[in-house]
Computed example of a mutant assay.
Amino acid sequence: MLTSQRKQHILSALQRDGNIVAKSLSEALGLSEDTIRRDLREMAAEGLLQRVHGGALPLAPAGADFASRQQLASDEKVLIGRAAARLVRPGQVVFIDGGTTAVQMARHLPRTLQATVVTHSPSVAVELAAHTQLEVVLIGGRLFKHSVVAVGAAAMAAIARIHADTYFMGVTGVHAEAGLTTGDLEEAEIKRALMASAAETVVLASSEKLGVASAWVINPVTAATTLLVSPEAPAKALAPLRKAGLTILRSDHGG
Rank of each mutant, 00 (worst) to 15 (best):
M1T: 00
T3K: 11
S4Y: 04
S4R: 04
S4H: 07
Q5T: 15
Q8W: 09
H9D: 08
Q15R: 10
Q15V: 13
R16W: 06
D17H: 11
K23P: 08
L29E: 05
L29K: 05
E33S: 01
I36K: 02
R37S: 01
R38N: 03
D39Y: 12
L40Y: 04
R41M: 08
R41E: 11
E42L: 14
E42G: 10
G47F: 08
Q50S: 12
R51W: 12
R51D: 04
V52R: 15
V52P: 02
G55A: 07
L59H: 05
A73S: 07
A73C: 11
S74G: 03
L79R: 13
G81C: 10
G81D: 09
R86P: 13
L87T: 06
V94Q: 06
F95C: 05
I96S: 07
D97R: 07
D97W: 10
G98E: 02
G99V: 14
G99R: 04
T100F: 05
V103P: 08
M105V: 03
P110H: 02
L113R: 04
Q114L: 14
A115M: 13
V118S: 11
T119P: 03
S123P: 01
V124M: 03
V124G: 03
A125P: 11
A125F: 05
V126I: 13
V126N: 15
E127M: 11
E127L: 09
L128F: 05
A130K: 09
H131D: 03
V136P: 14
I139G: 02
G140R: 12
G140P: 13
G140I: 14
F144Y: 09
F144N: 11
K145I: 15
V151A: 10
G152I: 04
M156A: 15
A157Q: 15
A160G: 09
D165H: 14
T166G: 01
Y167I: 09
M169W: 15
T172C: 02
G173Y: 00
H175E: 01
T182M: 00
D184L: 05
D184T: 03
L185Q: 13
K191Q: 09
R192F: 05
A193C: 06
A198S: 13
A198Q: 12
A198I: 13
E200A: 11
L204Q: 09
A205F: 00
L210M: 03
A213E: 01
V217I: 12
P220D: 07
A223Y: 14
T226M: 01
L227C: 00
A233Q: 03
K236S: 11
A239F: 10
L241M: 13
R242P: 06
A244I: 04
G245T: 05
S251R: 00
D252P: 08
